[in-house]
C-alpha cells in the first residue's frame, strides 16, 4: 500500500514538465494515491495545471510569500511536515530537486535514492553511478519513507487528461528560517525551445572555437527548431552560458535528435545524451570517441559542413 507525494517544480508561475515525469515514475509503483505538493507564493495556475496530470489523485498547495523562490532551507521543513503518512516522496532530479530532496531526507532521518531510472518494486530501484558507467539496483528500507529524485530523461511526462484532481490548501504550522535569502535569478532569456524538454538539440563544443562562431550553432538550431546545448569545454571557455551544459554535471537530456558538433565525446558528456533517440556527430577527427556512439557520423570541418547542411535542408 503506497502513497506517493510528488513535489512540484515551477518557475514564474508555470509548472515545469519535470513534475509530470516524476508523476509517471510514481505511477510505476502502482500506488493507491499520487498527490502533488505545490509550494509557491501564488499557487492557482500551477495547481490547475498539476490537477490535469493523468494519475494525480490530489493537489496539495501551500501558498506563503516565503515560498516565492525555491530556497531549500525554507521549503524542506514544510515538505517534511507534509510528507507524514506518505510511503514515498519524489522530486525531479533537476537542480531544484537535487537541492531540496536531501534536505528533506535528512529532516526525516532517512536515506535518499538519487536519479531513479526504473522501479523494480516499491522499495527497489535502479540508478546510475560513475557517470552512468554502472547501473546499480538499490533496495531502500521497507519501514522508512523513500525519498527519491527521478532521473527525468528516463521517464516520459505523464499526459494531461481532461479530468482534474481536487485541489486542497494545506496549512502547515512550521516556523521557517530567515537565514537564507534569495537575491536574484539571471535567466538566459531565450525564445528557443527549452533544452531539457526539446525534441531536437544541436550542441556545440570546443571545436566551435569562439563565442562569435557559436552563431553558426544557433542558426542551425533555429532552422530546424532545435534547442541549443554545449559541452563543458564550450561553457568553460565562455562561448555560451552555464545552463546550456549537457552531461554528468550539466543537464541529462533525451531528445529524439541530438547533434554533437565539434564535441569529442568525453564520457562525462555522453552521460548526458545516452537516452537520445538519434545521435548525429560532426567532427573533423575520424577517431573522436563521439563516433563510437553516434548513429550517424560525418567527418569534416564544421565550418564547411554546417553551411552545406543548411543548404541541403
Amino acid at each position: 500500500m503506497s502513497k506517493i507525494l510528488v513535489v512540484a517544480e515551477h518557475l514564474d508561475g508555470k509548472l515545469n514538465s519535470s513534475t509530470a515525469r516524476a508523476v509517471s515514475a510514481a505511477a510505476a509503483v502502482k500506488p493507491d494515491n499520487i498527490d502533488v505538493l505545490i509550494l509557491a507564493d501564488s499557487v492557482d495556475t500551477i495547481a490547475t495545471d498539476a490537477s490535469k496530470i493523468e494519475g494525480v489523485s490530489k493537489v496539495l498547495t501551500v501558498a506563503r510569500s516565503e515560498n516565492s523562490h525555491p530556497l531549500a532551507a525554507v521549503l524542506a521543513p514544510q515538505i517534511a511536515k507534509a510528507a507524514a503518512g506518505y510511503s514515498h516522496v519524489f522530486f525531479p532530479s533537476t537542480t531544484f530537486g537535487k537541492d531540496v530532496a536531501p534536505r528533506v531526507a535528512a529532516l526525516l532521518g532517512v536515506a535518499q535514492v538519487s536519479d531513479v531510472m526504473t522501479m523494480e518494486a516499491a522499495h527497489t530501484f535502479t540508478r546510475p553511478i560513475y557517470a552512468g558507467n554502472a547501473i546499480i539496483t538499490v533496495e531502500a528500507h521497507p519501514d522508512h519513507a523513500v525519498v527519491a529524485t527521478i532521473r527525468t530523461a528516463s521517464w516520459p511526462a505523464a499526459g494531461s487528461g481532461s479530468q482534474s484532481a481536487t485541489i486542497e490548501a494545506l496549512s502547515l504550522d512550521v516556523a521557517l528560517p530567515t537565514h537564507t535569502r534569495f537575491i536574484k535569478l539571471r535567466q538566459g532569456n531565450s525564445d528557443r525551445p527549452d533544452l531539457q524538454s526539446a525534441g531536437k538539440v544541436v550542441s556545440g563544443g570546443r571545436g566551435v572555437g569562439s563565442k562569435e562562431n557559436f552563431d553558426i550553432i544557433y542558426k542551425l538550431a533555429d532552422k530546424i527548431g532545435a534547442a541549443v546545448g554545449a559541452s563543458r569545454a564550450a561553457v568553460d571557455a565562455g562561448y555560451v552560458p552555464n545552463e546550456l551544459q549537457v552531461g554528468q554535471t550539466g543537464k541529462i537530456i533525451a531528445p529524439e535528435l541530438y547533434m554533437a558538433i565539434g564535441i569529442s565525446g568525453a564520457i562525462q558528456h555522453l552521460t548526458g545524451i545516452k537516452d537520445a533517440g538519434t545521435i548525429v556527430a560532426i567532427n573533423k577527427d575520424a577517431e573522436a570517441p563521439i563516433f563510437e556512439i553516434a548513429d550517424l557520423g560525418l567527418v569534416g570541418d564544421l565550418f564547411k559542413l554546417i553551411p552545406e547542411l543548411e543548404q541541403a535542408l
Binding site: 532517512v110 536515506a111 535514492v113 527497489t124 535502479t126 546510475p128 552512468g132 558507467n133 554502472a134 547501473i135 546499480i136 539496483t137 538499490v138 533496495e139 531502500a140 528500507h141 522508512h144 545516452k274 545521435i279 563516433f291 563510437e292 556512439i293 553516434a294 548513429d295 550517424l296 557520423g297 560525418l298 567527418v299 559542413l305 552545406e308 547542411l309 543548404q311 541541403a312
Partner: peptide
Amino acid sequence: HLKTTHYAAPAKRSKGVMVKDA
C-alpha cells in the same frame, strides 16, 4: 539504509553508420 544488491553495465548503444557528406 540503502542496500546495493546488483551492479550492471549500462545498455550499450549500437554502433551507427558514417555518412559521406551533408
